[in-house]
């Protein structure tokens, strides 16, 4: 297995005194499902956004597919971004447009400016969109406006928009934080499937430790902008959880032992 993504000594400083990330190192293999866990404000979102340079890291290097993302010029950066899909907590769909239009937005990066502006998509692209929406169980909603959908359905449209890019990697920023447990399970199952069946690397920011332990191949624990745990979910101990969240594991509202047992 080769490393698709390598993050080496990455730091990010906001202003002069707030350090969001300090010397972060990890690597992600092709097709792996990796969860990043940690308390709010630990730098999880910043870390994720540094990878596709929605935020520019202050120092360090990020190697994606043997390219250093940090040095890319605007045009090459856009090319890299087309290979990285992104999913958001608040779905970030264009509410006034239909589900299929929102899905096709994932293709904008590969189109010419004019075709993108006018919204001209080829028959192939449309078929692909319909197929993806079918796989995600959104057949009936193709022509509905995005704001008429439930949260879980919106998030599936978000996934569809990322998948149509034909990405090598998905970055998911708290994909289930605004969803009820049922929809959250559907979304996580879809993401897991994407990783195993399509071989797409998935990098997820999560608040739910139990969910992270259940679904991931690898856990990265972040606290105060530093990686404090990096390893398999099987080996994680109460002490590790305590290190990540800075509290007694017993105080947290889940049971580590129970999850390992199941």
């Amino acid at each position: 297995m080769t490393a698709l993504l390598e993050v080496n000594h990455v730091s990010k400083q906001f202003g002069s005194d707030t350090k969001a990330l300090s010397d972060v190192n990890f690597s992600v293999n092709e097709g792996e499902f990796v969860s990043i866990i940690g308390p709010s404000g630990a730098g999880k979102s910043t870390l994720l956004r540094c990878i596709n340079r929605m935020i520019d890291a202050t120092s360090g290097e990020i190697i994606f597919d043997n390219m250093n993302v940090m040095n890319l010029k605007k045009k090459d950066l856009k090319k890299v971004r087309t290979k990285i899909g992104m999913i958001f907590q608040h779905y970030n769909l264009v509410n006034r447009l239909s589900v299929i239009e929102n899905t096709l937005h994932g293709n904008l990066g590969k189109k010419s400016t004019l075709a993108g502006v006018l919204g001209l998509y080829s028959q192939e692209e449309k078929e692909q969109a319909v197929n993806i929406l079918h796989v995600l169980g959104l057949d009936e909603h193709i022509y509905k406006r995005a704001d008429q959908l439930s949260g879980g359905q919106k998030q599936r449209v978000g996934i569809a928009r990322a998948l149509i890019q034909d990405p090598r990697m998905l970055l998911c920023d708290e994909p289930i934080a605004s969803l009820d447990p049922n929809s959250a399970k559907i979304i996580m199952d879809h993401l897991r499937n994407i990783s195993t069946k399509l071989g797409i690397t998935v990098l997820v920011n999560l608040h739910q430790v139990d969910v992270a332990l259940k679904y991931s191949d690898k856990i990265i624990g972040v606290n105060h902008g530093q990686v404090v745990y990096n390893g398999s979910p099987k080996d994680i101990t109460k002490e590790d959880i305590q290190l990540i969240y800075g509290s007694e594991a017993e105080d947290l509202i889940f049971d580590v032992g129970g999850i390992h047992a199941s």
Binding site: R81, F88, N92, L93, H105, K111, G116
Partner: peptide
């Protein structure tokens, strides 16, 4: 919304009109 489209590699004009 703008962030989402930027992350997929869309350019300024595309984001404006889409």
């Amino acid at each position: 919304v703008i962030e989402a489209l930027q992350a997929s590699g869309a350019n300024w004009w595309q984001i404006i009109f889409q």
